[in-house]
Amino acid sequence: MRHLATAAEHLGQARGLPAVLDAACDAFEAILQVIGDYEDTTGTVCAPLLLAATQAANGRDAVLFAPSLPPRARHPPRATQEQERGSAAGISAATAGVSRLLAARLTHAAALAAGADQGACHDAARHATQIHGLLTGHRP
């Protein structure tokens, strides 16, 4: 769950709209990475994680088209890392935590943003909320 922890840390430290968008994009990517690793290592499909991964991709895409997103990642992913292993329950819990943080930061950013940035933040926050709902059964 190192990816998720790092993403959550960046998200927590981000200040200003571009930084929040950048960290949110990385956080969604981290969710995709962790779920993908789980699917690769177990060879099974867990429905809530599968659906959560789709919402993570949708959330990342929403942020991707925000005008204020920096063109290059502030924290580029490190080259070839080992796949992370974890149980479905552990991954669900960690992902739910990050998604709750994502929803909160993006909702807050939306209140400060305008135009297309605001729309992107709203959309991304909605997808983060859906991830949390899929993995916990309730909304944050």
Binding site: C25, D26, E29, R60, D61, L64, F65, L69, P71, R72, A73, P76, P77
Partner: peptide
């Protein structure tokens, strides 16, 4: 998304 591409790609926009 260009963030997912390797550093060989130098594209100054996110996609």
């Amino acid at each position: 998304p260009t963030r997912t591409l390797s550093s060989d790609y130098d594209i100054p926009r996110p996609y």
